[in-house]
Amino acid sequence: MLVRAPALRPELVRIADMVEPSSRVLDVGCGDGALLEYLARTKNVDARGIELSQAGVNASVAHGLSVIQGDADTDLVEYPSRAFDFVILSQTIQATRQPKLVLEQLLRIGRFVIVSFPNFGFWKVRLKLALSGRMPITGTLTHPWHETPNIHLCTIADFVALARELDARIDRALAVDESGDVRALSVPGYWDNLTAEGAIFLLSRTA
């Protein structure tokens, strides 16, 4: 039933590239399941998802994916440790209520954790805030402050600090520019923190 044409946004393709074939994957906040479907089709993974919106869950299940309706903030505790090879949190961590706890849970559940997020340290964001004195609206941060689901925005430097605090190993890091092109991000990445619109991190637990 996996019949939808792939129209995967470039960032998701980069994430998919990090996933090993035939692995067990959990996509947290999987939307309509586009990434999972792509992974199931191209990499033969055991694909599972959690999605908050009913419409997203129904669309995913209607397309033959194993997805449950759930909330990253509350439902990750239900998963056993090391249940998955890869746990993916794509453009979602900034919308969780407790990003640190969520990341902790992801590192417990998955052998590897892939996190992507918009970089609030991007120069355009800094400049808009500095010059206009208003909350920035950009290509990735599209909502006005009072309507945004992004309640915990961070910069690349902030994220690296959190990863270190949680004793996570940064196995790979990519800086994503406005056109969706990526380049390797060399941690701590002060330059990338200024020039990248977003980032993708591949983490694993050191302990």
């Binding site: 055991d46 599972r48 009913q54 869950v57 129904n58 995913s60 299940v61 994916l65 194993s66 997805v67 449950i68 309706q69 759930g70 239900e78 998963y79 056993p80 249940a83």
Partner: peptide, 11 residues
Amino acid sequence: NAGGANVSFVE
């Protein structure tokens, strides 16, 4: 989930 089963849940 706790048992590691393959599960979908729709409301």
